[in-house]
Structure formats: C-alpha cells, structure tokens
Write a protein that binds this DNA or RNA. Structure first.
Lengths: 213, 213
DNA sequence: AAGCATATCATTATCGATAATGCGGGTGAT
DNA sequence: ATCACCCGCATTATCGATAATGATATGCTT
C-alpha cells in the first residue's frame, strides 16, 4: 500500500472509532513523524480526509477533527435515503449478472467482519455493497455524495455505546436487496432500500423522514 | 492570492465554462508550466477539484475532466432542494440581523455581475448567497454537499446556449428570500426556496421533483 | 497598568529533485 | 501472422529543504 494510503487509512480509522475526538488538532509534521511519511504525503491524506468531511483544514492553524451532531447525522440519513431510493430504479433496470458477481464477495466480506465482531470492517463492506448497487444507476457524479452520507451516518452510529442488534442481522438484511436486483425489480428495490435505511435509527426522538418512495 | 488558489481558480473556471471539455486529460506538470507553479502546488489544486467532482484522478493515467449528464444534474437539483428547504426552517429560526448584514454585500456582488453580464461571477455570488443562508442552520457537515450540488447544477446550466431569462431577474428573485429571513418565517423561506429552485429548469422533459416542503 | 509594537516560534505552503510505476511501441520467437 | 516479452517514456508519487505566514508571548511606551 502506498504511503499516502497508509496515512489516510490510519487517520480515518482513528477518527471513525472516535480515538481522535472532534476538535483534536492534527499537524502535518506530527503525523508525518508518527506514520513515517513525508509532510507532503501526509498533506495529501489530510486533503482526502477533508474531502470526506472528517477533518477541516483552516489556514495555518492546523487541521482539526470535525464535530458531528445528531441532527447532522439525521440529515445525512435523509439524503442517503433520497439518493439510494432514486438510484435504485435506474440500478435495477441496468442490473446484470455481473453486478451480482460483484456483490457476492462483498457480501462474504460482511459475513467475515460480522463473525469477527469487526464493526469498522463491517461498515466498510456495507459501504462497498450499497455503493456497488448505486454504481449500476450510472449516476457517477452522485457517488461521492452518497459515500459521504454513508460515512457520516456510520460515524455517528459507531459512537453509540451499545450495538442494538447483532452484527449478523445487519448482514442478512442485505439479502433481500440482492433478490430484488436478480429480479430486476426497481420499485421493490427502492422500497426495500428505504426500509433498510429506516431501520438505521440514530436517535430515539428521530424525526420521521419524508416518504420519498 | 496563493499559487494554489490561482491554479485552482484557473482550472475551475475553465471547466465550468466548458473551455476544458469532459474527458480532457490534464497533467500536473503541464498545468504547472502553464500556470507557473510547482507540481506539488498544482497537485493540491487538482485534489480540491476532485473534492468538488470536477475532475477525476485515476492513478498514473492523469487527471480527466468529469462528464455530467442531464440526469445527474437533475438529481443534484433534487438533492439541493431537499437540503436547502430542510435547512431553511432551522436557518430562519436562528436568523439574526448579522445574517442580513452578511447577505447584503453578496446581493450587491450579484447585481454587479449581472450588470456586467458576467454569468460565472453571478453563479459564484449566487452560491455564496445560498450558502450564507444555509450556514445559519448550523448543519456544518452538510455545507460541502450543498456546495457540490449547487456547483454541478450551475455547471450544467452554463452549458445551455441561450440564457432563458435576463440575469437581473435571477438577482431580484433572491429578495423574497431575504424578506422571509427578516421576518424569521421558516416555513415561508422553505417554500420560497423550493419554488426558487424549481424555477431552475435544466431540461424540457424534466421529471417533477418530489414535494419535500 | 494598558495598549501597542516587536520578536519568536510553530506550522503550513511551496519548491526542485529523485524514485516508482504503468502504458505503449517495438522486437523476436513460434 | 500472432503472441509474449522487454525496454523506453511520460506521468505521478514521494521526499527533504526552504520560504512564508500567522499566533503567541514579551517588552517598551505612556
């Protein structure tokens, strides 16, 4: 793996797991020493993290880990729902056996992660799964936005101390999505995705999302 | 202005105005010579452009200008509508006279740009205007996403050969938004924003967006 | 004691050089 | 003629050093 990727993954993981808490200040040279890369390489990694909204770089005052409120996470989920359900209809129409082939190993990776109680790994695989489906919609320009929305709702979810459900449930809940794809049932996929996302409850008092489907 | 900003604005403008068409390949060293900065500086600018989705960097095969389909632009508009109308209620509730103070010079910049027929400048100011309002919502994490959505719908709009309306109309249509803010009328602002965005018609056959308001 | 100018320092920003990498052309074998 | 392989080249990736900058602390003036 490239040094820039090492730095990127290193910091990303620590932020997602809340090891690096919001408001923490990161310096390019400090991380460079810690990771063993040059300043410029770390710089690139931080730029990528800013791209995803995990850090904020403000001039010469250093790079700080961003905060994330429950409201923001909730809004991210609303957007995610809109993007995915609207993409679903196109994706199902364009679905090919090759898509299923792409999904299978990701599904397997989710199983592995769940078996090892690796919540971070599960989240990464979950992201890959949903993204792979969305890719079939052909709406390339929206992919990065979807990734961001998933990232932040996942980030918030990881902060919750108790995991409401066993990880295995999270995995199996993806099977119905594959069934819809195999049947090329766009409307069904959209509905299933909507429900799938609605089961991700971030707060008790959560405002009900508008019904886009 | 910093060299990195020069490079960033230079390339961004050329892409937005379609001087650099989709699929055009950009090389770091090539741009560096053209602009008069070092490779690393151009690299940072390109990273920022990728962050906004205007270019795509794929390994060592160079950086290419992204495509943008009508469908994608339309979806961006849907997202923009969702984000802004939902943010509007919070923004209005938190609106202060200071916000209006912030808006006035932006509004003035829009007038200037319209008077000079500077469509690119107008678009930049329009972005600042909407962003300033959204900032008041306190949903920091969503700002970048909103910027992206606005950027891409603007990009697509700039491609249309004929400008349907005089630029001045575009400017004056923002006044009602300021009125709602002054009155701290969240519901009114949300409705006005929704209509405001709906008047941005990208395609003749445009699918009507779902009514979030 | 308050306010302002200034020195110091930590940090980012930029540069030029060098290393690594993958692509395409060309060559030779079968 | 076709395929595999190898070499050269264009480009990105990385590094180390240096310049620029803004924040903070310090001392001088009034």
């Amino acid at each position: 793996m490239r040094p820039a990727d090492v730095a990127y993954n290193h910091v990303k993981r620590r932020i997602m797991l809340n090891e690096l808490e919001p408001e923490t200040v990161l310096t390019e040279l400090g991380l460079a020493r810690e990771i063993g890369a040059s300043q410029g390489t770390v710089r690139e990694a931080l730029l990528r993290l800013q791209e995803e909204g995990l850090v904020s770089r403000s001039g010469r005052r250093g790079t700080v880990v961003t905060r994330l409120t429950a409201d923001e996470a909730q809004e991210m989920l609303v957007l995610r729902r809109t993007i995915e359900t609207r993409g679903a209809r196109r994706a199902a129409a364009a679905a090919t056996p090759a898509l299923i082939e792409t999904l299978l190993p990701i599904r397997a990776a989710m199983d592995d992660a769940a078996a090892q109680q690796d919540e971070y790994g599960l989240i990464e695989a979950d992201k890959d799964f949903h993204l792979a489906i969305f890719r079939a919609s052909g709406l390339d320009a929206l992919e990065q936005i979807l990734v961001r929305c998933m990232l932040h709702s996942h980030r918030f979810k990881l902060w919750a101390p108790g995991h409401r459900r066993p990880l295995v449930d999270t995995v199996t809940r993806h099977d119905v999505l594959m069934d819809c794809l195999r049947a090329r049932d766009g409307e069904g996929l959209a509905q299933a995705l909507g429900q799938h996302i609605d089961t991700i409850v971030l707060l008790g008092d959560a405002a009900p999302t508008e019904t886009t489907a």
